[in-house]
Amino acid sequence: MPRQAYVNGRYTPHNDAAVHIEDRGYQFADGVYEVVPVYNGILVDEEPHLDRLERSLRELQIEMPMSRAAMKLVSRELMRRNNLSRGFVYMQITRGVAPRDHKFPTKPTAPALVMTTRQMKPHSAEALEKGVKVITLRDIRWERCDIKSVSLLPNVLGKQAAAEAGAYEAWQIDDEDNITEGTSANAWIVTDSDTVVTRHANNGILNGITRMALLDLIEKEGFTLEERPFSVEEARAAREAFVTSSSSFVMPVTQIDDKPVGNGHPGLLTMKLRETYIAYMNSLKEAG
């Protein structure tokens, strides 16, 4: 069976899936999205992902196109149709189809829902053994990064700059020279005193679901944590650094721009946190 997608109430071959040219997501990026990782056949942290999806919709005054229970059923049916055991369920909701006009449509529109799946590529053994490089660049995004909007052009430009520099990710810098987050991942450092530091969740970052899960795991493991801004200078002087996301899990960072982090190798605490997070995901299957 060819790969399937779900578009506005219908399952369809992925290659045939399409939306109307006047969908406001296409015209104005007037919509939000969510990506739920699938690990060993289990949707990881599905409830927090749906919580964030509903919050983003509320911030844009868009209704949920169906109940949460129905969204779960569609996710599982797509996983079944696409034989997905490790990967992602992608869901995008826009305000729907309306004549092109910047303001909200005067007539009610039905929110448009698209859901797809994608297989997860194994993490590079070299990346885990040697760590990855990040570059730094100015954060040019809008001031509501807490909304998981489909408007991602600044992130795209940052990710492209990272790729051209041979880097895994780009860490974005605010007007006070503090790191906000990566283009698609949250940023973390570990100080010489074994303190794990990540920026506090506000409108300047997207509060990652992997980030929130790791915060809980850090507390359970008894590590010292600080949620606060940290500068580029502090990051370059840190003993360890890493990123978290639904696709990266916990990925060690060993170079920032042209400067090695710590001894230039993945940190012991970073790798411990990665192991802890993977064990957490495995425990979901056992409990599922």
Rank of each mutant, 00 (worst) to 15 (best):
V7I: 13
R10G: 03
P13T: 01
N15R: 13
D16V: 05
A17M: 04
V19T: 13
F28Q: 01
D30S: 00
G31L: 01
V32L: 10
E34P: 02
Y39H: 15
Y39M: 11
L43Q: 12
E46L: 15
E46C: 13
E47C: 08
P48N: 05
E54V: 12
S56A: 01
S56N: 00
M71P: 00
L78I: 12
M79G: 10
R81L: 14
N82G: 08
S85P: 02
Q92I: 08
T94N: 02
T94A: 06
H102D: 04
F104Q: 14
T109W: 00
P111E: 07
P111Q: 08
Q119D: 15
Q119R: 13
P122H: 05
A127P: 01
A127G: 04
K130P: 03
V132Y: 06
T136M: 04
R138A: 14
R141P: 05
D146Y: 03
I147K: 05
I147A: 10
S149P: 07
S151Q: 06
N155A: 12
G158N: 02
A161R: 07
G166Q: 03
A167V: 12
E176F: 04
N178T: 09
T183V: 15
V190W: 10
T191G: 14
D192L: 10
D192C: 12
T195M: 11
V197E: 04
V197G: 03
A201V: 15
G204I: 00
L206I: 01
R211P: 06
E221W: 02
T224N: 09
E227M: 12
A241T: 08
F242A: 09
T244P: 10
S246G: 14
S247Q: 03
P252W: 04
T254E: 07
D257L: 11
P260F: 07
G264R: 09
H265R: 14
G267M: 10
G267S: 12
L273S: 02
E275T: 15
I278P: 01
Y280I: 07
E286D: 14
